[in-house]
Design a protein around this nucleic acid. Sequence first.
DNA 1: AATGTATATGAACATATGCTCATATACATT
DNA 2: AATGTATATGAGCATATGTTCATATACATT
Lengths: 102, 102
Amino acid sequence: MEKQEHTFLSPNTVEESARIFKALADPTRIKILYLLSQEECSVGHITEVLNMTQSAVSHQLGLLRNLRLVKYRRDGNTFYYTYDDEHVITILNQVISHIECK
Amino acid sequence: MEKQEHTFLSPNTVEESARIFKALADPTRIKILYLLSQEECSVGHITEVLNMTQSAVSHQLGLLRNLRLVKYRRDGNTFYYTYDDEHVITILNQVISHIECK
DNA sequence: AATGTATATGAACATATGCTCATATACATT
DNA sequence: AATGTATATGAGCATATGTTCATATACATT
């Protein structure tokens, strides 16, 4: 039996992929990103909609910010978040569609 | 400012999405699934290619099996694994392409 | 039957993760 | 300046995760 040729992933590609999937591998972050995929949201609004503590939401937003998946603008005391990675939103929506179409 | 209408995700959709993303949120599993996306592989082959212990690989395969992302056939003492969720492979490849095209 | 081979599995352990609680920060209002 | 408001941040904690080590399992070979 002949050995087939393979493509190998570079370590960097593997790590980067894992980082993206890790970002999406949590119910809270999925809900946040799904909300932001529909409209700009303040932290307070997200907190209300998800029915979570302000701190928990803010920590997750910080994480998404570090990964450059979201960005924000400030208006007085209010911080408005939007998504910042179109491709990740696309992937999220694809997975959601896949599940809902079952 | 008028409130916009939103779509909400059902708890089940959120949980299912998180489960899929969690499955992909680990370098070892990404490498295994990428290998399997190219060809059927025995456990021993995966172990060699990834340069990991047999046990570590087997544990991860068990996890992927539980999630119905891979299946296997037996031939004597050798277990040959293949992927079992086309859609998850598609998602994986999309993320990989996205990263490599940067 | 005894030994060898390939893989699975359970326990243990170190690290990562996601939350809470308390507090800091920065701007707004009085 | 003092107080209020919205958000960020650090410490601590419980749980989840990924690996190793030892061993079990199931089939093959002698």
